[in-house]
Design a protein around this nucleic acid. Structure first.
Length: 224
DNA sequence: TAAAAGATCCGCT
DNA sequence: GCGGATCTTTTAA
C-alpha cells in the first residue's frame, strides 16, 4: 500500500533561481536541511530532507566533470543555475546534481544523502526491497534509485514546483526537527582522486542518514 | 582502453 | 561491523 502522505500534499515554498545562482560551496551548505521533492505521475510525491552534499567548482576544479571544458555529458553544468545535472557512472548508478553559479561557470552541487520523509513505501519498491530504511537514500546512487531518477531527468528546472524534481523549504512542522540539527560540518569529498585539499563536502553530523558513517566515526543512532 | 563524483556481496570478526 | 573484490558501461583519451 502507498503511504497516505504521498498524495494530497501541498507544496512548500520552492527555492528560487537566485538561491542557486551563488557559488557552489555556498549553495551546498545552504541545501542542508532543505527538501528534495520527486513528483511522479499521478501527483504522487516522494520527499526527503537533504543531509549531505558536495560542491564542485567548475572548470578549475580537477575533481569536477567540467574540468577540461564542455562535453556531451557535462553540458547541463554550463547552463543556467537551478537545473539538474544527472550522470551515469560505474556502469550502474545515476547521480543527481544541481547547477549553481552563473551561466558558463559550470559549478554544481552533488546531492549525496537524504533523510526520507514521504513516500517511503514507493522508495522501498524502487530500491527493490533490498535494504533497510536507513540505507534507502544514504548515498548519491541510492537517492537516484529510490526516487527513480535517471538521465531522462537531466536538465530539469528544479526551481519550479511543476517539475518532476524540485527543491523546497521545510514546512512548519518539519522546521523543528531540522533546526535542532542545524550544525553543518565540512570534510573532503568522497570517491575522488584529485582535489582532496578542498573540504567541500557538507553534512549534518547528527543525521543517521549521512553516507559512509562508520568511516567518519559518527554515532549510528539519532542524537536528541 | 582504462578509469570513474558508487553500491553490493562475500568472507571475515 | 569491516575491508576488499566485483559488478558494468559511459566517457574521454
Amino acid at each position: 500500500m502507498l503511504e497516505d502522505k504521498s498524495f494530497n500534499y501541498n507544496v512548500n515554498k520552492v527555492l528560487e533561481r537566485r538561491f542557486f545562482s551563488r557559488r557552489s560551496t555556498v549553495v551546498a551548505k545552504d541545501l542542508i536541511g532543505k527538501i528534495l521533492v520527486r513528483r511522479l505521475s499521478g501527483e504522487v510525491y516522494l520527499r526527503g530532507i537533504i543531509v549531505e552534499t558536495e560542491a564542485y567548482g567548475g572548470l578549475k576544479d580537477p575533481a569536477s566533470h567540467a574540468y577540461g571544458g564542455m562535453t556531451k555529458r557535462n553540458e547541463a553544468m554550463f547552463g543556467e543555475a537551478g537545473f539538474s545535472y544527472v550522470y551515469f557512472t560505474y556502469g550502474f548508478h545515476h547521480c543527481l546534481n544541481v547547477v549553481t553559479g552563473k551561466i558558463g561557470d559550470a559549478q554544481a552541487v552533488l546531492l549525496r544523502a537524504l533523510e526520507p520523509i514521504q513516500g517511503l513505501d514507493i522508495m522501498r519498491k524502487f530500491r527493490r526491497d533490498k535494504c533497510s530504511d536507513l540505507n534507502l537514500t544514504n548515498g548519491p546512487g541510492k537517492i537516484c534509485e529510490a526516487l527513480n531518477i535517471d538521465r531522462s531527468l537531466n536538465k530539469v528546472d528544479v526551481a519550479k514546483s511543476a517539475s518532476s524534481i524540485f527543491l523546497e523549504q521545510a514546512s512548519n512542522d518539519e522546521v523543528g526537527r531540522i533546526d535542532e540539527r542545524r550544525k553543518i560540518v565540512s570534510s573532503t569529498r568522497i570517491g575522488i582522486t584529485v582535489g582532496l585539499e578542498k573540504r567541500w563536502r557538507f553534512y549534518d553530523p547528527s543525521s543517521i542518514y549521512v553516507s559512509h558513517r562508520s568511516k567518519l566515526n559518527l554515532p549510528r543512532k539519532r542524537i536528541r
